[in-house]
Design a protein around this nucleic acid. Sequence first.
DNA 1: CTTCTGACA
DNA 2: TGTCAGAA
Length: 143
Amino acid sequence: MPELLNLESFRFRISEISTMTGVSTRQLRYWEQKGYIHPMTRTDQQKARMYDFHTFVAVRIMKVFLDEGYRLPSAAEKMTSFLADINVFRDFVKQAFRGIEIVDGQPAVDMGSFDKAGKQILYGINDNGHIRYIVKDKKKDQQ
DNA sequence: CTTCTGACA
DNA sequence: TGTCAGAA
């Protein structure tokens, strides 16, 4: 899988982060002061803050927890662990995803070998929100 | 026009 | 946290 989009190259200004997350610019500066978020280092003293994609996600997640009633310190902690979980999942998918194939007449996610010998493949299918898995023998012309 | 810092409510 | 001032 080639990298179609490099999210790490995204750059946002403070007002953009504000509108995208629903968090005021005042809050963003305060959270930074408290050490909850870390905008990119500014060259000059009076230059505008720049935020990367990771920080955008962090802010958005914190906002969600705050809306759920958590206070700033708790929301920050939950954001950190949630971000860690997301990374675990992202790495998993990055390794497991082999492509999409038609199985039983519908799109199925090829999740790779199911058995150690590598003769069976695990597929995941989404039937209108109902997830099910199928193990199929690997075809010879598929090697 | 936008952002920054500091300050007051 | 919102808002405003004065500067960049």
